[in-house]
């Protein structure tokens, strides 16, 4: 107390400019950082509003006048993007469902039931987080080819129902462990079996964590490229990511249209981020600090 009082007393009379300069420095850095981070987004938007061909004229039109909103329609309809969007939605929805369901069940098993071998198996879960997906693409491709799954959505969705993402299992296990153990016992006394404890008691309590799985899983599947590239070959089966690549191969210099379509495809990411910002941030924080 006395020490604090003494320093405060000391600071008042001689008008200390240090904190002010510090503030100026901090805000300058933050504003410069913001500008640098936003330039790519700005560039994407202005390009998407240019008349075809004017991407390659000087002086650069920073604010296209008039803005060509029609690019969004033109770019989207010149190739079957509607169909590809439908494919993407279907795959993402199933993969999200699979991730949420399987990681909740498995996470509960690891987090709230004590059984022999559990901890060793959980170490294995953690170890698989290090396993690079590219190192198993060849056998997976051959397996799916043999059972006739190539060019279907099955290779991209079925594994998610079997806890394919170890990180999600880890995350939910952490959440299940934070619930008090008395909860289960009380429910059991009332006649609940383990599955009821899981479904009726514990699951509702970790709903925010399920939200985290939802957004992370959406992000991953909506933007995934390598998986669809390997497992889908016919253009009618393409996802948006593959469709966009196809667009690039067909209209290599149509940057205005390409940026317009790219922006449409990124919109769900950005909208979801703003709607579910707390889930994103919480998910990252939990994985970082509790991990």
């Amino acid at each position: 107390m006395t020490v604090q009082g003494a320093t405060a007393h000391h600071a008042v009379p001689e008008r200390n400019w240090g904190p002010v300069l510090h503030k100026v420095f901090v805000y300058t850095c933050l504003v410069v950082g913001t500008v640098v981070i936003m330039i790519p987004f700005f560039w994407m938007i202005t390009t998407s509003l240019k008349k075809s061909g004017t991407e390659f004229t000087f002086p650069i039109e920073w604010l296209p006048n008039p803005p060509r909103w029609k690019n969004y329609v033109d770019g989207w309809t010149v190739l079957p993007f509607n169909r590809w969007a439908l494919n993407s939605v279907r795959i993402s929805a199933l993969a999200i469902a699979g991730s949420v369901i399987s990681s909740a069940i498995v996470g509960f098993g690891f987090g709230r039931i004590r059984f022999p071998g559990r901890d060793a198996l959980f170490m294995l879960v953690l170890a698989t987080m290090m396993l690079p997906f590219p190192s198993v693409i060849v056998p997976l491709f051959l397996l799916f080819k043999r059972i006739g799954w190539i060019d279907t959505i099955l290779p991209l969705t079925v594994p998610t129902f079997f806890g394919a993402n170890a990180f999600f299992i880890f995350l939910l296990r952490q959440f299940f462990r934070t619930l008090p153990l008395d909860l289960d016992d009380a429910a059991r006394v009332d006649g609940c079996n383990t599955f009821h404890v899981f479904l009726r008691i514990c699951l509702p309590l970790i709903r925010p964590a399920l939200g985290i799985i939802f957004v992370f899983s959406f992000m991953h599947n909506w933007n995934d490229f390598l998986g669809p590239l390997i497992f889908l070959s016919h253009t009618t089966k393409y996802t948006l990511a593959l469709g966009l690549r196809y667009f690039q191969s067909q209209y290599r210099v149509e940057w205005a249209l390409m940026m317009a379509v790219s922006l449409i495809i990124l919109t769900p990411n950005i909208v979801l981020f703003f709607l579910a910002q707390k889930y994103y941030i919480q998910g990252i924080v939990v994985s970082g600090v509790k991990g």
Partner: peptide, 28 residues
């Protein structure tokens, strides 16, 4: 009972691990 239930709950992961991870790695 606990042991059985525990393995039942983590069985999706065990199957997935056996096929898509361990199996795939060995296959590779």
């Amino acid at each position: 009972r606990r042991t059985l239930e525990g393995y039942l709950f983590i069985s999706p992961w065990i199957i997935g691990f056996a096929v898509f991870t361990a199996g795939a790695l060995l296959g590779s």
